[in-house]
Amino acid sequence: MSNEVEEIVTHTIAVLVDNESGVLARVIGLFSGRGYNIESLTVAEVDPAEKLSRITLVTSGTPMVIEQIKAQLGRLVPVHKVRDLTVDGPSVSRELALVKVVGSGEKRVESLRIADIFRANVVDSTNESFVFEIVGKTDKLDAFIALMEPLGLVDVSRTGVAAIARGTGSI
């Protein structure tokens, strides 16, 4: 019965859409209008010839809500395909962050050392600051940013998650 407390699960969903004006507003409006969560959303054109964009969404909710989200996305007119990467077999997901750390002395050295461990690159440097570029899963980025916090973290820019199924299949 529905009064059982259902667990909250996180799913990564890939959506192939026509790259036309308003399509992102439709997707975002669906989430805000129906009270669904968006934890991450990335979008870019992936097929210029066919004018298709791919949206990668990370969302959380009860399994029933996740089903609803997929069904609601599927009935938007410019949506070609909806694929739940969390349940449709294994997938890879990556996110990129640019992380600015300002500091001097031991803290500055320590930030470089940690960046090395995380295989982050320095993409900009001044006498008092670094901008690190780091790529990985969301939790790796979270961990890196947490470690930078006491070392002079001043600014973070993250791309949100891009994800794709493993193996030979395509969306």
Binding site: S2, M64, E67, Q68, A71, Q72, G74, R75
Partner: peptide, 11 residues
Amino acid sequence: IDPSSINKNVR
């Protein structure tokens, strides 16, 4: 005919 009407309120 609308998959989003199924399992929306009642399983």
